[in-house]
Design a protein around this nucleic acid. Structure first.
Lengths: 193, 193
DNA sequence: TTGATTTGATAACATATGTTATCGTCCACA
DNA sequence: TGTGGACGATAACATATGTTATCAAATCAA
C-alpha cells in the first residue's frame, strides 16, 4: 500500500486506515490538470498508479518543478495549508489512479491528530525529511552541472527517465530539451570510448 | 532580541527565556570555523551580531550554501538532529557575537516541549516555513538566470551584498566571481542607459 | 608605516548552453 | 487506416559562463 514508513512512524500508522477511508478513488487520463496555478488548493492526492508533475508558467515557458510516482502523496503545500493561491499546477503525465482528499476532511482529521504529541512528533520528522529533500535539490543545483544532475537522476530515478517525456525532464534540470539531447549524446559517445 | 515571531508563536515564546538561558555567549573573530564539514554537530547557534556562512568543499572549491545574520539561528540540521556527520562547514564571515547551545541541553529541553501539543504545532509551522524557504531557493535556480538571482538578492537582502565578499556570493549564486563581476558591470551599464 | 593578503575588475580565450529551424519517428484517435 | 500532433535528434548560429592570468585598490597584520 501507499504508506511506506509504517515501521518508523507507528503513531501515524494507526490512523492510516481512517485517513485512507476519507479519500475518494478516481481514474484520470494523461495530461489532466488536477490543480491550476493561481487557484487555492482544496485537495491533496495519493498516487496508486501513474505519474504526476508539478509545474509553473515561467514567462510562457512550461517549467517542471517536481515529479511524483506510485505510493507518493502531494499537494500544493503552501496553498493547501494556508488557503492562498498556489504557485504551481498539478498535472498527470500518464493515465493515473489517484486517491483524493478534500481539505475540509484533512482539517477535521488534523483537529484530532494535533491533540497527540506522539503523532505530532512523527509529523515533525516527516517535515524534516521533506525539508532535507528540498535542501538537497537546492544543493545539487549549486554544486552540479546539468550533465551531473542528469547522471544523478539516471542513477537515483531511472524509472523517471524512462517514463517522463524529455522536455519535462529538461525543464526540471533547468536546461532546454535541445541541451538535454546533446548531453545524452555526449554521454553515449563517452561510453563508447 | 533574537526571537522575531513571539506574536505568531505564543507557546514557543513562553520557553524563550529558558531556551536563551541554556546558551553560552561567545565572541569570535572573522573566519573562525565553528563546525567543520564531516564532523558531527553538537551545537546550534544564535547570532547576536555578525554574519555566518554555511559552505562545503566541492572538489577543492569553496562553495557557499547559505548565509545567516543578526537574529537568526542555525545548526547543521541533519547532523544536529540525527547525530551523523554533517555535509557543511559553518564559518564566521565577520567578527561575531554568538550564543551557543549544546545538543545535550537542546535534547533535554525537547523532552519537555514534546509533551505539549500546542508547542509541537508551532514547531511544525516553523518547519513548514523552512521547507518553503528551501523550496523557493530551489525554484529560483530552475526559474531564474544568475543575473536575475543577483538582482533578487539585491532587492531582498541588500545588506548581504554589502557585507559579504563577492566570491562567497558568487558561489552561492552558482557562478564564478568573474561572472558575477561581469553581471554587476552589465547592470551598471544598463542603468546608465 | 610597510609589506603581504584579500578583494574586485578586466581581458582573452575556451566551453557550455540557448534559440530557432528542420527532419524523422511514433502513436493516439477520428 | 490515415493523419496530425507529440516527441526526440540534430545543425547553425548567438549568447552565457568558465578559466586563467594580470592589475589595482582595499584591508590587515607586523
Amino acid at each position: 500500500m501507499f504508506f511506506q514508513f509504517k515501521e518508523q512512524l507507528p503513531h501515524l500508522a494507526k490512523y492510516w486506515d481512517a485517513f485512507m477511508a476519507m479519500h475518494q478513488r478516481i481514474e484520470v487520463p494523461a495530461k489532466t490538470i488536477l490543480l491550476a496555478e493561481g487557484e487555492v488548493s482544496k485537495q491533496s492526492f495519493l498516487i496508486e498508479k501513474g505519474c504526476l508533475r508539478v509545474w509553473f508558467n515561467n514567462n510562457g515557458k512550461d517549467t517542471t518543478f517536481q515529479f511524483f510516482f506510485e505510493n507518493e502523496g502531494l499537494s500544493s503545500l503552501e496553498s493547501f495549508r494556508k488557503n492562498i493561491p498556489g504557485m504551481f499546477s498539478i498535472e498527470t503525465v500518464e493515465p493515473c489512479v489517484l486517491h483524493v482528499l478534500q481539505k475540509k476532511d484533512f482539517d477535521r482529521m488534523m483537529e484530532e491528530l494535533e491533540q497527540q504529541p506522539a503523532v505530532l512528533k512523527e509529523m515533525i520528522n516527516v517535515m524534516m525529511e521533506r525539508q532535507l529533500h528540498y535542501m538537497k535539490e537546492f544543493l545539487s543545483f549549486i554544486r552540479d552541472s546539468p550533465q551531473e544532475r542528469y547522471l544523478n537522476l539516471l542513477m537515483q530515478k531511472p524509472k523517471l527517465i524512462q517514463r517522463v517525456p524529455q522536455h519535462y525532464i529538461a525543464s526540471y534540470l533547468g536546461i532546454t530539451s535541445v541541451h538535454l539531447s546533446r548531453i545524452k549524446n555526449k554521454i553515449l559517445k563517452e561510453k563508447q570510448v
